[in-house]
Amino acid sequence: MAAVNSSATKPGRLRPWLRALLAGPCALALTALIMAVMPFWVPKGTGGVDHIAFPLFFMPAIWGIIFFYALLDRSLARVAIVMTVLAVIHAIALRGILAG
């Protein structure tokens, strides 16, 4: 309990807000980025539409996983790094796709 209280003191005052930022707007933006790139790596399937249907169908699940990860991982730095790496990879891929 003492450890919890000490983590909530001065240096950690911004932590809830940072976590809210990562789990809120950042999770939504990352979900949109991942969805935007999915049509280019998800197989088209027998009907030729799986690459469109899967991102649409799994959108709430993708968001949910990112949201709960950002919420429950104790290390805020790790959350920020993982989300940033994912975002950068997808942003580069999207840029390449749109340019090509």
Binding site: D50, A53, F54, F57
Partner: peptide
């Protein structure tokens, strides 16, 4: 044809369930 695409597929089946 299914809800999306010209042939039955996993994606069309999932969307049709919604």
């Amino acid at each position: 044809r299914p809800i999306v695409g010209l042939k039955p597929s996993m994606g069309a089946s999932l969307l049709a369930l919604i």
